[in-house]
Simulated scan of single mutants.
Amino acid sequence: MSKQGSRLRPPPLAADSLANVGFVSKGDKKLLNYPAQKEYFDKITKRYLQFCADHKGNLDAALASLPINSSNDATSNPPAAGPSTKSSPAVKGIPSPSAELSTLLLSLRKLREAVLATSASTPVDFSQKVHYFSIRLSILAQHPPSYFPSLRYSLDKLHSTSHPFEDSEINELLSYMILDYACRQGDMGAAFDLRARARKEHKFHSQTVDQVLTALMNDNWIAFWRVRKGVDSYVRAVMNWAVDRVRRHALKAVGSAYLNVHVSWIVGGCTGDDGDWTWDKLVETEKLGWQKEGDNVIIRRPKPRPPPQAAHAHAQMSASVS
Rank of each mutant, 00 (worst) to 15 (best):
S87F: 06
S264D: 15
S102Q: 10
A120V: 07
D42P: 00
L174Y: 13
S256H: 09
S206H: 07
Q211A: 15
Q211T: 14
A319R: 15
A315T: 06
M217L: 12
Q50E: 12
T122N: 14
D280C: 05
S87P: 00
G255S: 11
E286F: 12
V91P: 00
F165I: 07
G27L: 05
S6Q: 12
L108Y: 01
M188V: 02
E286H: 15
W265G: 08
Q291I: 10
A315D: 05
L288T: 15
Y258D: 05
L63H: 03
K56Q: 11
S127N: 13
R226H: 13
S121P: 00
F224P: 04
N171L: 00
P35I: 07
R9G: 00
T85P: 01
A99I: 01
R7H: 08
I135P: 06
N33F: 11
K3G: 03
D156T: 12
S134A: 15
Y34C: 03
W279D: 00
N77C: 04
L155C: 03
D219M: 10
R236N: 11
I298N: 14
S175M: 12
S102T: 14
G5P: 02
T285W: 05
S320Y: 12
Q207Y: 08
S256G: 11
S25W: 01
K46T: 14
L108I: 05
I170A: 08
D16H: 13
L155N: 02
N171Y: 03
A257I: 05
A196G: 02
R136N: 08
V227R: 12
E284R: 15
V297E: 00
S102I: 04
I299G: 07
L216P: 06
Y147E: 03
M188C: 06
L59W: 03
F133Q: 11
Q142P: 00
P145Q: 09
W290Y: 14
H249Q: 05
S96R: 14
S256P: 02
V254Y: 06
V321A: 14
I222R: 13
L137R: 03
S2A: 09
I135E: 09
R184Y: 05
P145I: 01
A141H: 08
S84V: 14
D273F: 11
N218W: 01
L158Q: 10
I266Y: 02
G82Y: 07
R7A: 13
Q50M: 13
D73E: 12
L213A: 10
T122F: 04
P35W: 04
S119R: 14
S160G: 06
S88P: 04
K200C: 02
H131A: 01
L31A: 03
P89E: 01
P123Y: 06
D244N: 09
K203H: 14
Y132R: 12
L105M: 12
Q37P: 04
W241M: 01
R197G: 07
A190Q: 12
W277M: 09
D273R: 11
V212C: 13
L179Q: 07
S98M: 00
A99C: 03
G268E: 08
